[in-house]
Design a protein around this nucleic acid. Structure first.
Lengths: 232, 232
DNA sequence: TTATAATCTTGAACATGTTCGCAATATCTT
DNA sequence: AAGATATTGCGAACATGTTCAAGATTATAA
């Protein structure tokens, strides 16, 4: 799997196997130390030393410390995509299909929990390249949303037509908030998050069901209008 | 109005008028430069120079650069509290009562929009002292929530009894997300945020209304269960 | 093969938030 | 008032993310 960061075009353009190996060494060293000591506690000098290169070399391959995390984010999304699609296909009920997407994500992220906070620290700031809402992370984001598009297609719950195009993005947002909760969840074995997921999942699927009722028409309309505003 | 940061007990304990004046000079210099050039662009050295003190003095009065913003946040909450209570009392309809709380907040924050991002940068991390969810900001947070408790009392909409204790906190959360949107809103005159507020307000009030329906009983119960989990 | 250009590597230097030991000053005690 | 104590104030030093000019290495062209 090739790791391509959005920046450092120069490096991406050509790249000898040797260069690729150096990049890899830096990347691996960084992730190992992030996992071990956490993001803040790991210094760019530490990473360079561990990888056996000079400080400058680390910056030759990665625009910033954050960019290393971004590369991880990207690799993570890529490596989990197809397996998750397969897992979705195993399930028939909407609730299970959504859950499976969430669970896969948690599994992939779990070993890296220690430094994931770094990714979400800037999350509200869409101008920050590392934000899940930024232009830079758009491709990754769209890939993740795609999973929910698949999960909500051909499931056992009928989704109102006008909601169909928006639902995947909403579910992705929902997943994001669960991940956020999970990162800061101090409960044993992350029981809190798992409980929250089960209960909220029930709620979400229920809401999707109810949203089809005539009574809910005006509410649904308002929600859709809201989405228009936010998307703009 | 006395500015008391949570930290620096030593300074808070005693504090001669002279010390208070110095603190004030630093605080004022900082806010002026934050407003003028933004948070990131203003250096602690800049602030110290502008205030006519040494770098160390700034750190004697404020634990960190962020802490200055926290002090602002606190003062902001304090100065707006009573006026907002009065404004609420002028309104009868729930929607108007909630809106008035939001509007007041926006008015207060508006001149400082340029550096507010600094406050919300850390927002998802409840372990960060500056996060709106941290222990350190609890007093400020509770004051803000209090406004919504008042706004939802004696309004024209009947709130289901089991929802009453939670609703103010939920509305505060709702306000927080609107503020977040507002900070990054690039539209002319913040039209986007204002539109979003109107539409979402309608939705929120509608949901509160609907939540009383028998049909909604299970949904409401799930939501309440969710709140239990999150609060723990 | 040799000269030239592209790529990779280096470590010093920089900016800035923060810490810290010490100096100056104010306050208190007797 | 004099000494002791507490406070306020100082700026050098530190840590760390980042930049940069220059050197080393590798690929390309002649």
């Amino acid at each position: 799997m090739t790791i391509t960061t959005t920046a450092n075009e120069a490096v991406r353009a050509r790249s000898t196997p040797k260069a690729e190996a150096t990049r890899r060494r830096i990347y691996d060293a960084a992730l190992e130390m992030f996992r071990d000591k956490g993001f803040e506690q790991t210094t760019m000098r530490d990473i360079a030393r561990q990888a056996g290169v000079a400080l400058g070399a680390a910056y030759y391959y990665f625009d910033s410390k954050d960019a290393i995390v971004l590369a991880f984010y990207q690799e993570n999304e890529e490596s989990g995509h197809q397996p998750t699609l397969d897992a979705i296909a195993q399930e028939k009920k909407l609730r299970d299909r959504i859950r499976v997407v969430m669970e896969r994500r948690f599994e992939l992220l779990e070993p890296n929990l220690k430094f994931l906070g770094a990714l979400f620290k800037h999350s509200p700031d869409a101008t920050d390249p590392l934000s899940p809402f930024s232009d830079e992370t758009r491709p990754i984001r769209e890939r993740a949303i795609e999973l929910f598009r698949v999960a909500t297609s051909d499931a056992d719950v009928k989704v109102p037509a006008d909601l169909v195009p928006h639902l995947p993005r909403l579910l992705w947002l929902y997943q994001l908030s669960l991940i956020l909760f999970w990162i800061y969840d101090r409960s044993e074995e992350k029981k809190g998050t798992m409980l929250l997921m089960e209960k909220s999942l029930a709620l979400v699927v229920n809401l999707i069901r109810l949203s089809g009722l005539p009574l809910m028409r005006p509410v649904r309309r308002t929600v859709l209008e809201l989405l228009e505003v936010v998307a703009a």
